[in-house]
Design a protein around this nucleic acid. Structure first.
Lengths: 200, 200
DNA sequence: GACATAAACGAACGTTCGTGCTATTTAATT
DNA sequence: AATTAAATAGCACGAACGTTCGTTTATGTC
């Protein structure tokens, strides 16, 4: 009972890191088992199928993401500070230690966008929730009067996601050392455009 | 002599479409052969290795991209019209018939960002070239006086790429029917911020 | 039409994959 | 300490993978 849960957790941790590099489909039960000094069948018994493993990896990743990004950022004061907190922690997330291959969800997003199934459904759910967190936080800023009243929270969330994807592309694929400053600048422009003009 | 080149082209065409769905790594020689009514070995003989096939798929994709996007867009008048042409044709590219799985390069980018090798190198080269086309086109707009003199072409290219990635994410993964209008709006903001303020 | 060569085939190779079984070991409970 | 249940190992399976080989069919040239 207790022991099983421990190793299951260890498996998921390792699998999350591996999946950030090779994707959820690239996850190999054999390789994973070897890395953890487990037998293939012993590891397999924890999940009963590869699909379940993939889903649980996604769920594990989402938990860590909430802990690492969402929860602390939501502790920041409403309005711009909170948006910046979301952004900065998100930036940091892609570089965090358990993700040697960058953001797990970015990897999974392009991998699964044409592969219907439970794994994809779960991923979409997570992404929608995350976009909703951003949009809701932004809306609070509108209500507070720091963002334009005609600004659209969903559009802002979409644009912010685009900035992060651009950052991921520049830093991970192009190994652009300026990726971070570029992303920050892009986000600043986003905020500037959303800010309520003084005197309104 | 002639015949070989014909089927090689047919293979690449089909492979490009397939790779847009399952990625370059997900390309299977057996499956590809079956789809084309060829034997595995017959197809294989054209490329001598899977890696060569992947590279040639990338090269074929780049050729089509230039034909579909770059060349026609560069025919548009300098400044904003050309930037818009680049954007619109780029949007269209992801939906074009030979790419049922969306933009091949977006797929390849996240797939290969942690896999060193010749395929990755080639992809990076293409991406750099494309970013350079955007930046150069933008710079012409600066020289022309339609964009701010302090705007940075590389930053603009980076941001524009982010918009496209956001579009890809929203349309392909989230199946968001508003993806296109969102992308257009994001690009409009980008242009608006780059435009030279009147009276300067 | 004969000949050279290019193109395609068919079968097999050695691996790796995910997935079942059946033991055996290890941990929790009494 | 004994009993029971959970956790892991061992082994085998069928399928798919990229790749190699020898052979056959089609093509282009003289």
């Amino acid at each position: 009972m207790r022991k099983g849960e421990t190793t299951r957790q260890a498996i998921l941790e390792r699998a999350t890191g591996l999946a950030s590099k090779v994707g959820l489909g690239g996850l190999s039960i054999g390789e994973l088992a070897a890395e953890l000094d487990l037998s293939k069948s012993g590891l397999f018994a924890h999940f009963h199928s590869k699909e379940t493993l993939q889903i649980q990896v996604l769920e594990h990743g989402a938990e860590v993401f909430v802990e690492h990004v969402v929860r602390p950022a939501l502790a920041a004061p409403r309005g711009e500070p909170r948006m910046r907190a979301l952004f900065e922690r998100w930036l940091d997330w892609g570089r965090s230690s358990p993700l040697p291959g960058g953001c797990l969800f970015v990897q999974a997003a392009t991998e699964l966008d044409d592969r219907p199934g439970l794994v994809r459904d779960r991923l979409v759910e997570f992404q929608r929730q995350w976009l909703d967190v951003i949009a809701t936080s932004f809306r609070k800023g509108v209500d507070l009067g720091v963002f334009r009243r005609d600004a659209e929270p969903e559009q802002f969330a979409h644009d912010m996601y685009g900035v992060m994807l651009g950052y991921h592309h520049a830093s991970r694929l192009l190994r652009d050392s300026q990726a971070e400053s570029r992303a920050r600048r892009a986000f600043d422009s986003l905020l500037a455009a959303a800010r309520r003009p003084s005197g309104e």
